[in-house]
Write a protein that binds this DNA or RNA. Structure first.
Lengths: 282, 282
DNA sequence: GAAAAACACATCATTTCTGAAATTAATATC
DNA sequence: GATATTAATTTCAGAAATGATGTGTTTTTC
């Protein structure tokens, strides 16, 4: 997808954009298709900057002009994502020396930048949607699956009905069929996008359920389909992305949900603790 | 905590800071104590802005002056941080307001302290044991299970035989019987201790396998039984512990293992990516 | 209490940002 | 194919931001 190309370019330089440029950047991150669908003027208006700024912006991003960027984007979309991966060589991104201190610095950056970028109204909206859900469906494929487990482990301490998808070898549609409009979906969509996730989010919307997604910044999967999207930074120094920031965000999210639910959550926690005691776990 | 006060204020207005101010903001988020410890000039230098900018920054944040802000911060620290928290009661530890900024500060502390506490020889020993293992057994119960998934997801990209315990409904002893002295156990033992973990580590030792454990500071489970123990800090502000630091450590560990294995790891990663492509995953 | 350091405040020169308006290119319409 | 229309780009001037410098005040430190 071509919009990923722009999003990525944006993120590379995001930290030293001017304020107007940042408004534009935010706009494109939130609406990855905007460049393809709208004119420079509309975009400028939408992002609340002048046309001049929009024009300059694309030059600054390395394109010869807005027009060219748009053309590239449109072409890219047309040919579809025909195997043209953005990370041309996905393997050794950077041959980091892998010093522990560097890793720490990198993850701290991830944390800070992630929290900076999350708007508090988005966060509280996410919390509310999860708190008042009847059931919560935690969904994630591939590398996200550990996060699924993780989110469920926290949430189950606080709410009684947390389901995860995919589960064991069970068929997804059959499982997911029990979703209702009183439920909320928590979509973990970091990294590689899957069509399954897309389908599920569409079904969720169809069923009238709320959806909260946690994505990295590049991934557009679910961004448009979820009601709230919390973007996390996952830059790793070497082979792997780091999920420290998403984990931190999820922890906060669950904690906030627990606090929102309040009394009920506390009792449930106590109850769980009792069971542990009865079973003689130390 | 007083520094959280500033962090909070920073996050509130972060979106419309200028670039130099953002550099300052980042600096303070990354070094919450900086305001208390350093002079305006040092801070300016550190954040790579002029003194004038630093002065203006604090006015813009609503303080009468830099000096006042510093004084307030210092005062806050003295009186505020007196009480050390105890984790005796697992349920409502502290009725934190759960502000995002506090959470960020807390997780950064966790990260920093964790990395500080890990000796580099321990780490490299752990890496070596994992890198040269024939099979790796990733083990963890309860809340650790997400970490198990997580570690396996990373390691399987680099080595061909990573097993996890517990698995599905399979009986642990039957599974674990295939361990040999050429294997390495990666024990994830944060939080509640289980006797199962203890038993497994004993069996591993009996079989002559190496064991690396990742624990929190409280848990002694496996500390004595593992050859290397990496301690992580998991202090959470409220109901839940935060696993951000363990995740970060595991990420580093896996990355280091990958680098140590080198060529083979890179090829395996490429191979996996090819399969993804063949399957048409974007 | 004197010297030194840190700071507040004001001023000014530069640089950078920004939007409005003018210009040019592209596209549609007849 | 000429013209009307719209979109994109460039120009330009004002605004904002930034850093440098200088001066007087407060705070430390000895």
């Amino acid at each position: 997808m071509s919009s990923a190309r722009l999003s990525e370019r944006i993120l590379e330089v995001f930290d030293d954009l001017t304020r107007a440029e940042r408004r534009l950047a935010d706009h494109f991150l939130a609406n990855p298709d905007s460049l393809v669908l709208h004119t420079a003027e509309e975009i400028s208006c939408e992002a609340e900057v002048s046309k001049a700024t929009t024009a300059r912006f694309f030059k600054r991003m390395g394109f010869p002009s807005f027009k060219t960027a748009q053309r590239m984007a449109r072409r890219g979309v047309e040919e579809g994502d025909g195997g043209k991966r953005v990370f041309s060589d996905p393997v050794p991104r950077r041959t980091g020396r892998g010093e522990l201190a560097d890793h720490l610095a990198s993850d701290m950056q991830n944390l800070i930048r992630t929290i900076e970028a999350i708007r508090s109204d988005e966060m509280s909206s996410a919390v509310m949607k999860l708190a008042r859900a009847d059931k919560i469906w935690v969904i994630g494929f591939g590398d996200n699956y550990p996060l699924v487990h993780f989110a469920r482990a926290q949430l189950i301490k606080v709410k009684p009905d947390i389901r995860i998808i995919p589960l064991g070898g069970f068929s997804v549609p059959e499982e997911f069929a029990s979703i209702t409009s009183a439920d909320t979906v928590l979509a973990l969509a970091i990294g590689r996008r899957t069509r399954m996730m897309r389908s599920i989010l569409q079904s969720a919307r169809l069923a009238g359920a709320d959806a909260v997604s946690i994505t990295d910044q590049v991934s557009g999967a679910g961004l448009d389909l979820a009601d709230v999207a919390l973007r996390c930074r996952t830059n790793g120094l070497s082979y792997f992305d780091s999920l420290a920031a998403p984990v931190s965000v999820i922890t906060y999210l669950c904690m906030a949900v627990a606090e929102r639910i309040g009394q009920a959550a506390a009792e449930r926690l106590r109850y769980i603790d009792n069971i542990h005691s009865e079973w003689g776990d130390p």
